[in-house]
Design a protein around this nucleic acid. Structure first.
Length: 958
RNA sequence: GCGAGGGUAGCCAAGACUGGUCAAAGGCGACAGACUCAAGAUCUGUUCCAGAAGUGGUCCCGGGGUUCAAAUCCUCGCCCUCGCACCA
């Protein structure tokens, strides 16, 4: 017996596939094509299991389709565009310990780490490493078409430039304004990867309220403009020196930081003076919207880093304001210090403005009481209180009768309308702040800048959207259930900022100071795969827009373009042929996080640039991988690389473990325990498939049964494969079919029919080969088969070999076994003798009548007894018949039509059981007798025989 | 809050669209038996409760409903996951 060595076999077949160019494919009009692909990975590290599982599904599909006779293209490339690599390289250069530690932990030798200070090194290193891993994973990749992105690949660079030029001509690339998180010191955008803290924070919009004071305005920032109707006072920090600034022609009083921010947000700002907070305490200002005078009161709890340093006070709905007010009202000394009139101050009461289900008129007062908050020092409690009140008020609240024309309006709507109105009337403005504190790598707190010459892809364009919907409507989605999500995203998308100042990538053709952003340069590159093997060999200088116009839009002729560009005409013809043959792609498969950006962006670009016949045909989606029930993520520190898995388990085991981890949108789980078991089972399959077995030539009824089961299995596997339900497919073609085979072996006393054995080994190996191709190639070779199993034809289910009678008969036998076992278990009898009494003919007759009647919905005691008394043979026994019929009628009434069909076809119970009596004897190690229930000579000491009925012989055990 | 997907036995997970052989597939784990000097592997069986006869009881997040019949359909509620973007 030869032991299967996965390591050796996997290397061997990967080498042979490469040498024989098994997966290197070219256009071939004599064969139907299938083009599958998967988003190229971003190469700032080694591939992890999440990417592996995402790549594996289209890989399995590709192998399956190849066996179904398709010419299959499954290419692979690498994404280098964007900021993370640049940022990481910079960190290495600066010797940042965290980054260096990260590199070490992924397995980069320490002495090599300095090389990564150069961003170009990443772009060389990781694609090469990823390619090794992908090859070792056994993917059927056509490497002749691989490439990297960015200007480091001048050919691809030309392609992206063409794409953007065309999009701009179509009017889909537009100039606009856009708020970004910005470092005032570095004067740059602060991307997530450039932050010390504040990852994920984005610009959010505050309303700036104007409070008039002697012809000048004090400005207060708020996120809840709708609460202006509840304003009772204004808060100032007496110790802070505010500035007077000329802003767009008005005089504003704000803090200095705010003045700086406003300068970046399209305001004309000139500081003209300073004013101490203390000087303004006690004065009255006219509040916006309500146009009432309210007093300026002191507090020390204003975060000067946010907003203007001045805060409006709404004690009814803002817990902070209520607590601050209460504290001040009770602090006589503080009042004295600022010369405040205590009586007037104490007269200030919160004003109810929002009606919220489940809350009283003053939610802030209510929650502060409930939580027992006494001071502004209790920051955590206040935060929670604020959150609760805000959530309830914002989503469920309705504006009270004292809110002008907004009375009765839901808060969720009123917020925007009130804001708009105040801005319109010159009572308010806007200010952007990061949604949370963001600190740039240079340690400067970030602000928000409004960039005004930002380029956008106009994904908000309604006409464009409707075309994308049309495209989606014609696509196949795996699983179909993801369609709603796509439709939602298409509608929800707005214009996308598609250029950046920094990062790797392609420069915007008409404005070279911009680099095309990384999600925007990767929307139609699947078309690039069709031509890259030829294009990448050309002189990039010669690749002009006309070339792509010709290849993808069929503009001009090959000779014209050749003459104009100096590119050999046959290369152009070849590329055009490849594109026409392969495009559109049939399947693009990705994890679900790309639904709301990349996958949908790709649809937009396709409908804009390509003719309808080249629009995408199919998308596949999978969930996020979990390892031991934990979501795999950097923050959990449980990221497993593909390389580790391959080293530990080998390719086939990694593949099958991932494939059976889950399907559809569910998060697949990587189960190391399963990996261990399946590894042994696969070796066993190799041994079984390649060893000699004792067989026989003659054909037995049980052979028909297994052949039938196998055919059904092939059919069902195929159905699951077509739906990309790989887990289901594996269950059917491997776990279930193997179990059936075990049963078959028992039924044949380990002597299978030789032809059937051969057929089973061949079929099972083929069915498994998309999942574990190396093992299957090795078996294929050991069996002496020609060529590669990767190119062999998929098994076909033969309708004429499906034998329902054989299957029903075997089921009948199995149910007898189960019944006997059950009896033995309950009675704890160790059997010496088992007797099976078969249903008499008259019961069969009545049973079948009942089924007929049930099918025609006409079954009742009455109808069935009428039939019995009309029957010559049965009319004598109406008494026993009525007893039996009572039970039958009850059973049948709750039978599904499928079961009526199934049980309506009786099998030859006696014949089948008699043939199988040896099995029963060995199974229970005792004597087994089969007789007719009404045979006079039967052995029936406990009078069990009378319980016999069709499908359920009576059983006696002693 | 909005959008999407979910909640099934010790765990993972089918079933739900199309109600009925559904006490509910399969995998993992656990237990028992066979094989073995032994362990492992493998094979066989058991794995909601009760049971000396193939049965009965309870059951699919919780409440209510429709139906001869509900894990499945309707309704109300609770809970979980993901997304809500300017970027990989």
């Amino acid at each position: 017996m030869t032991e299967y060595d996965p390591r050796k076999a996997e290397e061997k077949w990967q080498r042979k596939w490469l040498e024989d160019k098994v997966f290197e494919v070219r256009a071939d009009d004599s064969r139907p094509k299938y083009f599958a692909n998967t988003p190229y990975p971003y190469v700032n590290g080694f591939l992890h299991l999440g990417q592996a599982v995402t790549n594996l599904h289209p890989e399995i599909m590709s192998r399956y389709k190849r066996m179904k006779g398709f010419n299959v293209l499954f290419p692979y490339a690498f994404h280098c565009t964007g900021m993370p690599i640049v940022a990481a390289a910079r960190r290495i250069k600066e010797g940042e310990p965290r980054q260096i530690e990260l590199m070490k932990s992924t397995g980069i030798p320490e002495e090599q780490i300095p090389l990564f200070a150069d961003e170009n090194y990443w772009v060389k290193y990781f694609p090469a490493e990823a390619r090794k891993d992908i090859t070792r994973f056994g993917l059927c990749t056509d490497w002749s078409r691989t490439f990297i992105t960015t200007s480091a690949n001048p050919h691809y660079d030309k392609f992206v430039r063409w794409q953007f030029t065309r999009l701009k001509e179509l009017g889909y690339v537009r100039l606009g304004e856009h708020p970004v998180v910005w470092c005032p010191k570095d004067q740059t955008v602060v991307g997530d990867h450039d932050r010390i803290s504040g990852e994920g924070e984005t610009p959010s919009e505050f309303t700036l309220l104007k409070f008039e004071l002697e012809g000048k305005y004090l400005l207060a920032a708020t996120l809840r403009p709708e609460t202006v109707y509840g304003q009772t006072n204004l808060w100032l920090d007496p110790e802070v020196e505010y500035v007077e600034a000329d802003v767009d022609g008005e005089t504003w009083i704000i803090n200095e930081q705010c003045a700086e921010k406003l300068k970046e947000q399209k305001h004309e700002v000139n500081i003209i003076g300073k004013v101490k907070g203390r000087e303004m305490i006690g004065k009255s200002v006219i509040a916006p919207a309500i146009h009432r005078p309210i007093p300026i009161l002191p507090t020390r709890f204003i975060d000067q880093g946010k907003g203007t340093g001045i805060v409006t006070s709404v004690p009814s709905d803002a817990p902070d304001d209520w607590v601050a007010l209460k504290v001040l009202q009770e602090d006589k000394e503080e009042c004295k210090k600022y010369g405040l009139n205590v009586e007037e101050l104490r007269a200030i009461e919160p004003i109810p403005i929002i009606i919220t289900k489940g809350w009283g008129p003053l939610p802030a007062v209510e929650i502060v009481d409930k939580m027992g908050i006494k001071s502004l020092e209790e920051k955590e409690k206040l935060l929670k209180a604020k959150e609760d009140v805000y959530k309830a008020g914002f989503y469920d609240g309705i504006m009270r009768e004292n809110c002008d024309e907004f009375s009765g309006m839901p808060v969720i709507r009123a917020k925007d309308v009130i804001k708009e109105k105040m801005i319109e009337e010159g009572e308010a403005s806007t200010l952007y702040e990061p949604s949370g504190d963001v600190v740039c790598r240079c340690l400067t707190p970030s602000i928000v800048k409004i960039v005004s010459d930002q380029w956008f892809l106009a994904y908000g364009d309604d006409e464009w959207k409707s075309q994308v919907h049309e495209c989606l409507d014609d696509m196949t989605l795996y699983p179909e259930i993801s369609r709603k999500q796509f439709d939602y995203v298409i509608d929800w998308l707005t214009d996308w900022a598609c250029t950046h100042h920094f990062g790797l990538g392609t420069r915007l053709p008409w404005d070279e100071k911009w680099v095309i952003e990384s999600l925007s340069d990767s929307t139609i590159y699947m078309a690039y795969y069709t031509i890259s093997h030829v294009l990448q060999q050309l002189d990039p200088e010669k690749i002009t827009d006309e070339v792509f116009d010709f290849l993808f839009k069929n503009i001009g002729t090959s000779s014209e373009v050749a003459a104009k560009t100096g590119i050999p005409e046959d290369a152009l013809v070849e590329m055009r042929r490849e594109f026409e043959y392969w495009y559109p792609f049939d399947l693009r498969h990705s994890a679900k996080d790309l639904i709301q950006n990349h996958l949908t962006f790709a649809l937009f670009s396709h409908v804009a640039i390509f003719d309808r016949k080249y629009w995408p045909r199919g998308y596949g989606i999978n969930g996020y991988i979990t390892v031991r029930e934990e979501k795999m993520s950097k923050s959990l520190g449980n990221v497993r690389t593909l390389r580790d898995a391959l080293n530990q388990l080998g390719a086939d085991v990694t593949r099958i473990t991932l494939a059976q981890g889950g399907e559809g949108l569910d998060d697949p789980s990587f189960d190391p325990g399963f990996a261990l078991t399946i590894g042994r089972k696969l070796k066993q399959w190799y041994s079984f498939a390649t060893e000699k077995h004792e067989t026989r030539e003659e054909w037995h009824p049980i052979d028909s049964w297994f052949r039938s089961v196998m055919n059904k299995s092939v059919k069902e596997t195929e159905e699951a494969m077509e739906q990309m339900n790989h887990r289901t497919a594996l269950k059917i073609c491997y776990f279930d079919l193997q179990r059936e085979w075990q049963w078959y072996l028992r039924r044949t006393s380990n002597t299978p029919n030789s032809k059937l054995l051969e057929d089973f080994v061949k079929t099972e190996t083929k069915l498994l080969s998309p999942f574990v191709p190396h093992l299957c190639e090795e078996i294929w070779e050991a069996l002496g088969k020609e060529g590669y199993i990767s190119r062999a034809s998929y098994p076909e289910s033969k309708a004429e070999e499906i034998d329902r009678v054989a299957e029903r008969s075997e089921e009948f036998l199995k149910s007898n076994l189960e019944d006997i076992r059950e009896i033995l278990k309950v009675t704890k009898i160790v059997p010496k003798k088992i007797v099976l009494y078969l249903s008499p003919d008259w019961k069969n007759k009545v049973y079948l009548w009942a089924i007929q009647l049930a099918k025609s919905q006409d079954l009742s005691m009455k109808t069935i007894m009428e039939k019995a008394s009309a029957d010559d043979e049965l009319k004598e026994k109406t008494k026993v018949i009525s007893q039996f019929a009572g039970k039958v009628v009850k059973d049948m009434q709750r039978m599904s039509s499928a079961n009526l069909e199934k049980f309506g076809n009786l099998v030859d119970e006696k014949g089948y059981l008699s043939e199988s009596v040896e099995l029963l004897k060995t199974q229970f190690s005792c004597d087994v007798e089969i007789c007719d229930a009404e045979d006079e000579s039967r052995y029936d000491p406990k009078s069990k025989a009378k319980f016999a009925m069709p499908w359920r012989p009576a059983i006696f055990v002693e």
